Simulated scan of single mutants.
Amino acid sequence: MATRQGPPTPPKLTTTMLPKALLPQRHENIYTIPNILTFSRLLAAPAVGYFVLTQSAVPALALFAYAGITDLVDGYLARRFNQQTVVGTVIDPMADKLLMTICVITLTMNGTLPIWLAVIILGRDVALAISAIYFRWISLPPPKTMTRYWDFSLPSAEVHPTEISKINTMLQLLLIGNAMLLPVLPVGLVETWNLSGVLEGWFYLVGGTTMWSGLSYIGNKDAVKILTKEEGEERKKENVGGQ
């Protein structure tokens, strides 16, 4: 007698049989101490602007100093404990620029900084921000959706500041720090050492380096690196493996 056979067993579904869009994607571990410190700088920036506008010189200077210290600390920790992430390369300069933008706007509003310098600094930052948006979009692997666009744990491009840009960032921070320090110092000290005149000299120095740094990105192939599929996967594996 012929044996009765049951229904055929369906083949097992493996990841190699799934479309690429349905494959599970590995994400970076973005919840690191360096990134948390960077996010705290993002939150501190609006508070600094508020204190500047309300003429609260001491709290404004204290928070600005905190932002500067954490900027150094988070970079050291990321390198020391191998917690560098692609999202860190995005939000770290973002935190710096948010703080700088708010400080420049508020210090210009209260008459500390000249309008022409604010136009140079903010104009350069707007141009770089537009470029960053463009490179993020063209480098994002498909499917290109707004949800995936804002998911910075999906690495697609890395930003590498030029040398003059790093120097300019430091000079801008020193300029803002000096502008915030003057109201805290005794009036006699400011007048004796002509610190107001020194600050005016900083205006022209920072204005020149800001224009120079903006031009340094033009034609510099090392400033923005679009990650290949293999490089993006390698970045995610490194950070997932460190969790």
Rank of each mutant, 00 (worst) to 15 (best):
residue 2 A to Y: 08
residue 2 A to V: 06
residue 5 Q to H: 11
residue 7 P to Q: 01
residue 8 P to C: 04
residue 11 P to I: 05
residue 13 L to G: 01
residue 13 L to F: 05
residue 14 T to V: 03
residue 16 T to Y: 09
residue 18 L to Q: 07
residue 22 L to I: 00
residue 22 L to P: 01
residue 25 Q to W: 10
residue 26 R to Y: 07
residue 26 R to D: 02
residue 29 N to F: 06
residue 31 Y to F: 12
residue 32 T to P: 05
residue 33 I to D: 01
residue 33 I to E: 01
residue 35 N to H: 06
residue 37 L to S: 01
residue 38 T to H: 05
residue 41 R to E: 03
residue 42 L to W: 11
residue 43 L to Q: 05
residue 43 L to I: 14
residue 44 A to I: 15
residue 44 A to R: 12
residue 46 P to F: 13
residue 47 A to M: 15
residue 55 Q to R: 15
residue 55 Q to S: 14
residue 56 S to Q: 14
residue 59 P to M: 08
residue 60 A to G: 02
residue 61 L to G: 01
residue 64 F to E: 01
residue 64 F to K: 00
residue 64 F to D: 03
residue 68 G to S: 02
residue 70 T to N: 03
residue 71 D to V: 12
residue 72 L to N: 12
residue 72 L to R: 10
residue 74 D to H: 14
residue 79 R to K: 15
residue 79 R to P: 10
residue 80 R to I: 06
residue 80 R to H: 14
residue 80 R to E: 06
residue 84 Q to M: 09
residue 84 Q to H: 05
residue 93 P to V: 07
residue 98 L to V: 14
residue 102 I to T: 10
residue 102 I to E: 00
residue 104 V to S: 00
residue 105 I to D: 04
residue 105 I to Q: 01
residue 105 I to V: 15
residue 105 I to Y: 04
residue 106 T to F: 07
residue 110 N to Q: 15
residue 110 N to P: 00
residue 111 G to A: 07
residue 113 L to A: 08
residue 115 I to A: 13
residue 118 A to Y: 14
residue 123 G to K: 12
residue 123 G to R: 13
residue 127 A to T: 06
residue 127 A to L: 07
residue 129 A to E: 10
residue 129 A to C: 07
residue 131 S to Q: 09
residue 131 S to M: 09
residue 131 S to Y: 09
residue 132 A to S: 10
residue 133 I to M: 10
residue 133 I to L: 11
residue 133 I to A: 02
residue 134 Y to D: 04
residue 136 R to W: 05
residue 138 I to E: 02
residue 143 P to E: 13
residue 151 D to R: 15
residue 153 S to I: 05
residue 153 S to M: 05
residue 154 L to F: 11
residue 158 E to S: 02
residue 158 E to L: 02
residue 171 L to T: 05
residue 177 G to I: 10
residue 178 N to K: 07
residue 181 L to I: 08
residue 181 L to T: 11
residue 183 P to T: 02
residue 183 P to E: 00
residue 185 L to C: 03
residue 186 P to H: 12
residue 186 P to R: 13
residue 193 W to M: 11
residue 194 N to E: 10
residue 199 L to Y: 12
residue 201 G to Y: 12
residue 205 L to R: 11
residue 205 L to Q: 11
residue 208 G to S: 12
residue 210 T to N: 01
residue 211 M to P: 03
residue 212 W to I: 10
residue 213 S to E: 09
residue 214 G to E: 00
residue 216 S to G: 04
residue 218 I to Q: 01
residue 219 G to S: 01
residue 220 N to M: 00
residue 221 K to I: 00
residue 223 A to C: 10
residue 223 A to S: 14
residue 226 I to T: 02
residue 227 L to Y: 05
residue 229 K to L: 08
residue 229 K to Q: 07
residue 232 G to Y: 05
residue 233 E to D: 15
residue 233 E to Y: 13
residue 239 N to S: 14
residue 241 G to S: 10
residue 241 G to C: 09
